[in-house]
Design a protein around this nucleic acid. Structure first.
Lengths: 344, 344
DNA sequence: CTGAAAGCGCTTACAG
DNA sequence: CTGAAAGCGCTTACAG
């Protein structure tokens, strides 16, 4: 059951290991090895079931043909949507993918990157969390190919691909305003991330453009708050905001809090209150009918990220920033789209 | 930014590479290297930030300190429950874990195992699917450490750990019968798997022991059937079985079909119809209150599987069968446990 | 056109 | 107690 090595093939074919290596790596022509010899070697290799030992190749070349995908949590829907797409796409380019997650743990993020780089991972696709800024800087300094997904750090010059957050909220707001909603609340989270800022800004711009005030209409939940606390805050926000007609939730986690609040208040969607969610992670299938979602095109984001990475791997890290923002879709869940608002 | 190598450490410390290797691998004493020298070498290694290159170690030793975890799908809750536990446990033993999924694709299962074995994976934890029998046999023949989880092949002598399916259904049935339910249906799937056989047998044995007939009470759904078809079958089963008081669903997929059917029929849980689900994959959180679950202890299964694997890794594959069955728990979801059945 | 040789970074008998 | 040497399986200048 011993594996056949390149040397074995050479011996059987009666040539030197180098010749076998050249042929098997498609450099026969370049090395001007005769067609006849080349095809003979190919045949022997096939017959003996030869497969190069990737560990040896990796040691020799310093490349592993492996990509590292680092996400926040491996058990979420975001990861589920992504992993398969990235794996398939990577395979097309001859790469394997290993997955790791930080599980919301700063320390672990650091270790992971360290471990991956030791294993000679050739490139990284990372969903960055606030704590990883430094690690990512080091990766860049080390000239490693990196692409960020879903978010980015304004201070670091590294390719990233994410949904166009501003445009997404704009779309959702246009939809609501067109339907006649005027008292629209916005629930966001107290997190210093570019995405969240963009979303809030788009809300305010939309309202102001429509001549609507936003003074008492923004609720910002603390990130550390636990779930029950959050539900409580959303509940009283809904109760205490006069004439509230609709609420825009800036993330799907917030959306779930909202759903629960609405449920507890005994309100009916969308008649009593309309609801719209910015679905960061393409989980809109979880929502019941009657909710509008700004949907992230996870598939397109993943594909684009991989392409950016391949570009870097193909021609070295050019260090140029490439910021790609993908337009989100507006999805009305279910068939019961809420109609024109009557008594505006 | 060049990595420091063992050779570098040797040069800096003024000793030979072998000495460094011995010290760093804890064989200083065994090789009778002086304490002073050993600690000096340790210090240099630390100061220079030396980390052995795992690729080189792997090439030289033939071991990778990596375990392969193969599951059916990476996007399910089962995987989510498992991955973290296995990863943590493996880390305690100094192993990393790489995940792969067959995504219900026979061909892919084969490729995956091939790829992992090339990468010198030291051991396998596999959730077997019917198509993998041959591949697993080869692994065994090849003397690779393997542990199966969640299922097993009766014909193959390989360690496996799974919930005690028979006992689980027995528990659930005892619960129902004790509450006074007599007309209990059993919905299973037409799949030739030991787990399913055990579950059905336990149902029949329970009923018979209580002196209850089961003739018209078993529905077996075809595995290939699509979801809508399945819902249809369950719906008519519920409608056409006289005096049906409760239904036992043999898997959580079937349970979801049942939930939808009950919803469509406008029945109220558990008053109109009681429902109990064998939750293969610890997803009982998805069910609404009023449903009883036989819950798989995913955590314990995962831990045990890893221990079995470590045993093999520690002392070589002894080839002996070790079949471990873990007792399932009975979980009544939510606070609204259904009460004593009144009009039996 | 083809082969001998070095070397990727380690470990481990073997010889002092 | 410690070092020189071989070798894991490959790739790639270098020399014919």
């Amino acid at each position: 059951m011993k594996r056949v090595s390149l040397k074995d093939i050479a011996r059987i074919a009666g040539v030197s290991p180098s010749t076998v290596s050249f042929v098997l790596n498609g450099k026969a022509k370049q090395m001007r090895i005769s067609e006849a010899l080349a095809s003979k070697i190919m045949e022997v290799a096939k017959k003996e079931g030869y497969h190069p030992n990737p560990v040896a190749v990796s040691l020799r070349t310093g490349k592993s043909q492996i990509l590292g995908l680092i996400v926040e949590t491996i058990s979420g829907n975001f990861f589920a949507s992504l992993s398969r797409i990235i794996e398939d796409e990577a395979a097309r380019f001859g790469y394997k993918v290993v997955y790791t997650s930080t599980e919301n743990n700063r320390q672990k993020g650091k270790e992971l990157i360290g471990m991956l780089s030791q294993r000679q991972v050739d490139g990284y696709i990372i969903t960055p969390t606030p704590g990883m800024e430094q690690d990512i800087k080091e990766l860049i300094a080390d000239n490693k190919p990196v692409v960020l997904m879903d978010s980015y750090f304004p201070g670091i010059d590294v390719p990233h691909v994410l949904v166009n957050n501003y445009e997404g909220v704009l779309k959702g707001m246009a939809h609501l305003i067109e339907k006649g909603y005027r008292r629209v609340g916005f629930v966001t989270v107290d997190l210093n991330l570019v995405q969240m800022e963009e979303r809030l800004k788009a809300f305010q711009d939309s309202m102001h453009k429509a001549g609507l005030p936003t003074d008492d209409l923004v609720l910002s939940i603390k990130y550390e708050e636990d779930k029950e606390q959050g539900i409580h805050q959303v509940t009283s926000f809904i109760q205490n905001t006069p004439d509230l007609e609709a609420v825009f939730f800036a993330t799907n986690y917030l959306g779930l809090l909202g759903l629960e609040s609405i449920h507890r208040l005994g309100l009916k969607l969308p008649d009593d209150l309309a609801m719209i969610v910015f679905d960061d992670h393409d989980v809109f299938r979880l929502y019941p009918p009657g909710i509008t979602c700004i949907r992230q095109p996870a598939e397109e984001i993943a594909k684009t990220a991989l392409e950016l990475l391949m570009e870097q791997l193909g021609k070295g890290n050019n260090g140029g920033e490439s910021k790609i923002e993908i337009s989100p879709g507006l999805v009305v869940r279910g068939t019961t789209e809420y109609g024109q608002k009557v008594n505006k």
